[in-house]
Amino acid sequence: MLVAERLTKTFASGNRTLTVLAEVSFAVDTGATCAIVGPSGSGKTTLLGLCAGLDRPTSGTVWLAGADLNALDEDARAALRAQHVGFIFQSFRLIPTLTALENVMVPLELQGERGAHDRAATLLDRVGLGDRLDHYPTQLSGGEQQRVAIARAFIHRPAILFADEPTGNLDDDTSHRIEDLLFELNREAGTALIVVTHDLELAARCERTIRLRGGRVVEEMGDSHWEMGAEASAA
């Protein structure tokens, strides 16, 4: 489903070059779950952005749903995301001017699919918000907002879901409920799940874990069959 090969990302900072990610390689199968962990600044979010086609690597390749992201222009990558990718963000990223229902409908509407309203209502009911369809994000609690975001992420049945610190802004109880929901839906839909997190408990619920430090993969855990990049394994 996802193959990253020797991904490197550098930034020019003044007259020196800052390497944020160095030669990272891994692969994730359909339906697999994978956590990316590491301290702040280790390159987790950068890696997520590259894998989802939100940014271009300085070198290396990403294969997502069978497509080489380097070969696609911005609009083609957007089309690929619309079809195959779901997102969950730490700060929920709901569109403040849309109701819960409308937020969930967006991915389907982007693809011009019919029946968005009913499917979104069903899914919101599934995440326990059947009575909050017409509420705006500001009228929902953090946990409720993240549940809307999860419904939005699954509505178009993506092949792969990227979650960036999905419980980072939530208290423990709410976090656990959100995690349960996430993994439940993931199982039901057979979606590959990539979770970037500080939360080792959350990481432990994934089948595999990649630990990053200073832009390099320093450890892998779980029953993986992914390969570490040459540089990363050397480190």
Binding site: A52, L54, E74, D75, A78, A79, L80, R81, A82, Q83, V85, F87, F89, R93, L94, I95, P96, T97, V106, P107, L110, Q111, R152
Partner: peptide, 13 residues
């Protein structure tokens, strides 16, 4: 932020 989210969800520029 809304635009960035929409782009993540697959909306083109």
């Amino acid at each position: 932020d809304t635009v960035a989210t929409l782009r993540c969800l697959g909306a083109t520029a």
